[in-house]
Design a protein around this nucleic acid. Structure first.
Lengths: 205, 205
DNA sequence: CATCTAAACGGACTACGGTCCGCTTAAAAT
DNA sequence: ATTTTAAGCGGACCGTAGTCCGTTTAGATG
């Protein structure tokens, strides 16, 4: 009978899964290291699953066994910074975290999200691409819910759930990146427009 | 010396291009017919370029010579209904066309767009997918401009161009289809939320 | 230590979008 | 009618994501 409490924690993996074998853990580390290296060298678009497998010295099947898909790999690479972002708007200091009025939190949320996309843009894009249910990803669901709650807090009456979706659409990474990279819009201007949008939506009650 | 005026019109092709050879025209018709047939049978996702080539009895290279890419093919298939939609909101009767106040036209535009996506959803999706500059497609540019003009007409002062992008984001086909197909939202509810959104944005001056 | 088994592994294989290039042919010019 | 030439054509070929299945091995059991 094995002692469950002796199983070492494996950050990033769902709880309740059987313990990871040594070789599996080693290969996961190898793969993540190789992936970060390749992205640093060739950018996120330059990372192919074949190259990753070769670079990490494992078979291709192993890559897919670990991460399920390319999008899954990108998600894993992002998970740390995502977690930081999430904890900041859920538990951090105002105006992003609790303590400030809903409208200010909404504004801060959009501004932070824009910064986040500017920093990890291509990775986020790669994580969303090919993932058919991109709107059902746990992180996306969390944002929608967050926005919805803030809307309700501000007394938004009519269909706050759907309005949260509309507002989230404005923060879509692909759109933001297109605006910045193709049209040369500055992040500041994006932030100003977001502030304007949410203010009108909330005040227009 | 050839008489330019004797060249027969080729709907859907850019003007200023050299006349199409007979065999090319014949193959284009074959391909479009085969494409519509395949889509009717297997849905838009079931249409692959290889199958299309085989089904139409032409080589694969011919398919790509005609349409450039899968997205280009889908765009061609949509072009007729797109043109109808465009002419309706640009030249048609109010409230969609000119003659009604800007806000009413905005509301009508969103409602019509939602209907359009409900009707041609998967085709629109296939036309956007894999096309890297989906926001720079001629049709998309036209909508943005249309929304922007209506905003200005309503006296929207601060950055109407960017606000038009935000509003257009709400009407993104992928999002709309996900809401309807995954979350079971009715088109009516989408339309109501759109009305609410644009009203708040315009009135909130 | 020997045995056993389920997890992990690897790389050949498929499906797909897209490119390339040598051959064919419509149709213009003579 | 013959010649000429550029548009059109076909399908082999490439890179990529993702699957399959026979083989290997970590690590638990006795």
């Amino acid at each position: 009978m094995s002692d469950v409490s002796s199983i070492p924690p494996r950050p990033g993996l769902p709880v309740g899964t059987a313990a990871e074998r040594r070789d599996a853990a080693r290969n996961r580390e190898r793969l993540l290291a190789a992936a970060r290296e390749l992205i640093a060298d060739c950018g996120a678009e330059g990372l192919t699953m074949d190259r990753l497998a070769e670079h990490a010295g494992v078979g291709k099947g192993t890559v897919f066994r670990r991460f399920g898909s390319r999008a899954g790999l990108m998600l894993t690479l992002l998970s740390e910074s995502e977690a930081v972002f999430q904890s900041r708007f859920m538990f951090g200091p105002p105006p992003l975290g609790p303590g400030a009025p809903g409208l200010e939190r909404l504004i801060a949320f959009g501004v932070e999200r824009i910064s986040y996309v500017m920093e990890f843009g291509d990775l986020v894009l790669a994580a969303e691409h090919a993932s058919h249910g991109r709107f059902e990803a746990p992180a996306a669901v969390l944002w929608h819910r967050h926005i919805e709650i803030l809307l309700r807090e501000e007394g938004f009456g009519s269909d706050p759930w759907l309005m949260a979706w509309s507002l989230a659409a404005t923060l879509d990474p692909e759109r933001l990146l297109s605006l910045v990279k193709v049209h040369g819009i500055t992040p500041d201007r994006l932030a100003a427009s977001w502030r304007d949008l949410v203010t009108r939506v909330v005040r227009g009650a």
